[in-house]
Amino acid sequence: MKTAVIVFPGSNCDRDNVNSWYAVTGLKADLIWHKESHISDYDLIIIPGGFSFGDYLRTGCVARFSPIMKEVARQAAAGRMVLGICNGFQILTEAGLLPGALMRNRDLKYLCKDIFLRVENNSTPFTCDYALGQILRLPISHGEGNYFVGPEEHKRLVDEGRIVFRYSSPEGQVYPNASPNGSLDAIAGVINQNGNVMGLMPHPERLAEDILGGTDGRALFTSILNSYRLAPTKKSGAQQRG
C-alpha cells in the first residue's frame, strides 16, 4: 500500500502522521512537498494538521491553491483514499472536496485537549474497524474547528450517513454543547459522497500508541489498511505487503 503525507509550508503534523502510520501498520509513508504538480498514484493521501501558509487568512484557503491540490483532486476522483486531519480537513473543505466550512471556535480560543467522539458511520473505509456508536477519546488541537454547513447540505449529510463522527459526552450522548468548538450538529468529521475522502478535526494519529495515553486512534489507520486489502480494485499498483 502506498501512502503519501502532503507537506505544505506550515504543516506541522506531517512527520507525526508518517510515524504514527508506521507505528500502527508497519508501513512507510512518503512526504510530498506541496509544489509537486505530478506524483505517482497513492492508495492513501493524508493531508496533515498544522498551519498551512500560517493560516493568517481563512484556514486552508491558501493551501488549496498549491500545485499538489490538483493531484489530490485527481486521485480523489479516481477513488483513492484521502484523509484530512485538522488543518487537512480545513484544506479539503476549501478545495471543495468536502462540504462545509470550519469557523473559529465558539469561545474564540485555541483548544488542545482530549474530547469524546461517537462513531456515526462504520461502513466507511476509514472507520470499518470501529463499532457503530463506539465512543472514542481523541485529542483536538485547533482554533477553527467550528464546522458549519448550509441546511440543505446538512440534510444531505444526515440522510446519506456522511456525518462520520460527532462530539459526545464521555457516555456517548450527543447534544449541542458536547461540541467543544460549537460545530453544527456536533459534527467532528464528514465524508464525501463517494466515500473515499474524509476529514475530521480530532487527531487520531496522536492517540495510537499506549505510551501516549490512549489507542483510540489506531483503528482509523487499521480500517484504512484493511479496506485497502479487501478492495480488489483502485490500487496504485504498488506491491502489496503483509
Partner: peptide, 16 residues
C-alpha cells in the same frame, strides 16, 4: 488547564 488547553502540548507525539 485554562492555560494549557490553549497550547498544543501534544504535537510531535513525544509528550508522555
Amino acid at each position: 488547564n485554562w492555560v494549557y488547553e490553549q497550547y498544543d502540548h501534544m504535537v510531535g507525539l513525544a509528550t508522555i
